[in-house]
Design a protein around this nucleic acid. Structure first.
Lengths: 215, 215
DNA sequence: CTGCGACTAGAGTTTTTAGTCAATTTGGCG
DNA sequence: CGCCAAATTGACTAAAAACTCTAGTCGCAG
């Protein structure tokens, strides 16, 4: 109880580590136990099964998503809100990138997780739309109202599968933070053509900022 | 030899069918054999293993990709070339959608397939870029040369993971042709903001065309 | 000290799927 | 017909991973 880290938390932490390193699918409960120098039985004392571990990791992820990515306050500058979002999303993406690397597979094996995921994503979509509307309102972008939802979906798709895309293109090289930041740049590129004349230089500055991080 | 379909081809066909229906991962060699009413041994007489089956299916897919999606002839109208591409890509996507539904997983289990895939994709990227350049040259879109490659990647990502995205958003409902065509529409939306004034009505017509197909 | 509950060990069971193999059938050809 | 190679059978083996179970240990409250 008073130890630095309870076994349960050590298991979660080691799981995230191993999942990120070699992929969720190839990590067995035995691997996790061996990695920690504990017995498989011990692991099953703390978790019902592997699904249970993944679910709790997802819960942690979802919690961070909720707390770190707050709805945009109307007072804040819309473009700052965007940058703030991008930072937060991509930090989470990095920390839990195993999840993004094989999302359909992971979800297909656990209907309960799938439902949680969908619920979380619904919230995300709403917030992306809110940011887009704020950007439009503050004349950063110019876009048909009809197209906003579609654009939001495209952005979400890009973010969700950026890691997967990287893996299909260059599976050998490991995912690092720089490669994740390249995903931010791609999202920015999705905005760029909608940018109003006056906003363009500020978007370019944002782009420069992430280009520096992406190497 | 003279039968309508040799066992080997029947196995390939049944595999595609089952893979599309329930997912590659959950279809075992025994399932395939049972589905055809043949013995597992028979299947292994024709194929070394399941990977072998998947590889041959991929070969067929790649061959269709090569033959159906020809490099754009300079004479043709650029926008027609685009429509032609979209049609072809999305037909293949439909026919082999199991492949798109779990790409990272399938590739990660077979390094040889992965290499083939990368090679094919390199060609695809080149052709997408060619189409974009043609569109620019014929003043359909207006875009920085620097952004063309990035846009091509975004398009490729969207196409590649459209099915996966659908599955994460609404896993229960089956993938049908209409839902695949909705992906075409998303690609078109990626172009739209780059469209020149004069090309806009023609793009809108194209959009209408796919909207009709997507329901 | 002792007893109790939280925790841990690790060998072993179960389940699942890939893959093998010797025996058998089939179909065309000399 | 009778032979041979191609095709086919299905029971069996192997391997891997999830998960269980019993027999403990540890630490602390009474």
């Amino acid at each position: 109880m008073e130890k630095k880290l309870r076994t349960k938390d050590k298991i979660l932490q080691a799981s995230i580590e191993l999942f990120n390193q070699v992929g969720e699918r190839q990590v067995t409960t035995n691997h996790i136990a061996a990695h920690l120098g504990i017995s498989p039985g011990n692991l099953y004392y703390h978790f019902r099964n592997k699904e249970d571990i993944v679910r709790q990791i997802f819960k942690e992820y979802a919690k961070l998503l909720e707390t770190r990515i707050k709805p945009p306050s109307d007072k804040a500058e819309a473009l700052d809100a965007l940058a703030c979002y991008l930072d937060a999303v991509f930090e989470l993406m990095w920390r839990f990138h195993f999840f993004y690397a094989n999302l359909p597979d992971i979800l297909s094996r656990d209907p309960a997780l799938q439902q949680d995921y969908q619920q979380v994503q619904q919230g995300v979509l709403a917030r992306v739309i809110a940011v887009l509307k704020a950007l439009k309102q503050s004349a950063v972008i110019q876009i048909d109202d009809d197209d906003i939802t579609d654009l939001a979906h495209s952005i979400k798709l890009l973010v969700t599968f950026w890691i997967s895309y990287l893996k299909t293109q260059a599976p050998d090289q490991a995912i690092d933070q720089a490669s994740v930041y390249q995903g931010v740049l791609k999202v920015l590129l999705l905005f760029k053509p909608y940018a109003t004349e006056q906003a363009r230089p500020r978007i370019a500055r944002l782009q420069q900022h992430y280009e520096d991080l992406a190497r």
